[in-house]
Amino acid sequence: MIIKFILNKKEVSIDVDPMKRLLDILREDFGLTGTKESCGEGECGACTVLLDGKSVTSCLVNAVHIDGKEVMTSEGIAKEPIGKLLIDCFDEPNAVQCGFCFPGFLVTSYHYVKTDGEKNLDKIKKSLSGNICRCTGYQKIFESVMLACERKPLMNANERE
């Protein structure tokens, strides 16, 4: 079937098997390899993207579900003001280790910082609880997201949205 959607703020359209996983569409049809496959069953969050502004595991989303919707990947988020802020906040404490899970963490924490943004450790832990990291022990990830929440109010008002 032909589906149309907005990918990283650009309108796109492809002819695709309606069951094809969004993850494969991104990687194979659009060359957006920032979205990673690790478990393929929604249990790790390495393939997290935003679907209509909400974080989802793209390995469990089918082509049919994105028709007419908006998809943002780590590549797109990296260009957004809050995305840039987060990247700097992950970079500063050397939070990134192997990095395979980090595009997913970037997407989920972007959603948190953008829609909530309260510097609250419990809330941050909960919001990131669908993303698994095996390297870091998470502490530096929490530290980075807390830092981003702290710095978000210092951004220009139009960049915070």
Partner: peptide, 9 residues
Amino acid sequence: FASPLIQTT
């Protein structure tokens, strides 16, 4: 329920 990511869909 599951995780925030799964809760979305």
